[in-house]
Amino acid sequence: MATREVLNVKGLSAGYGPLRVLHDLDLVVYSGERVGLVGLNGHGKSTLFLAIAGLTGWQRGSIRLNGHEVGGTRSQGPGRFTHRVVKLGLALMPQGDEIFTGLTVEEHLDSGAFTPRAWRERAQRKRRVLEIFPPLEKLMATAVGRLSGGERRMVSLGRGLMADASLFLVDEPSLGLAPKISKGVVDALMSVELGDAAMVIAEQNVSLLEGRVNRLIGMHAGKLKGEAAVGLAAQTVREA
């Protein structure tokens, strides 16, 4: 399989107001790979994801998603261009779920299929998501606000998987869940057929990801550590 650069981040700095969270960060993600992003609280994992989606306070540096430049210098209007980034093939499964409490699970999954192609194929996509998260089958007509934390996480992840995306950013899938459930959620994420897409999973709990992703990148104080090297990444992808 020919590997392609799904995401290419170069010299990305981002932050909120006077606070700078990311420091000149470079990251390349290739198609078909699963990348684990591990690091402690407050070291910029979520900010990296938000910066890719254009949701931070300000940012500088190049972000290329499928060859389209979505970064650049921006200092106001967080979220103003997010929908365009999403159209270019980004699916962000945010920390804290950001679910729509009043919608039913089915409507929720529909809302994830935002691009025209995904909307046309939403029935198929829903079936695929239900294969990954079987417990949602019974809950399709329930309002999301009535679900438990684990179910909500499934809905949030399922919403992300509905998208016609080439890059899935999963932020802390195990946050706030019981260990058993969080393991199940991570298992489900691992079972997703990526095809040409790529997935980046941010986690604090390294043991959940160890040995199950193509490479693990550490994040410390707004900088990447560990196996971020480009050549190495290409190699690991070939082995996988």
Binding site: S13, G15, G17, P18, R20, W58, S75
Partner: peptide, 8 residues
């Protein structure tokens, strides 16, 4: 805000 963005 501008200053700190620039400085940072």
């Amino acid at each position: 805000k501008k200053k700190s963005e620039f400085r940072s």
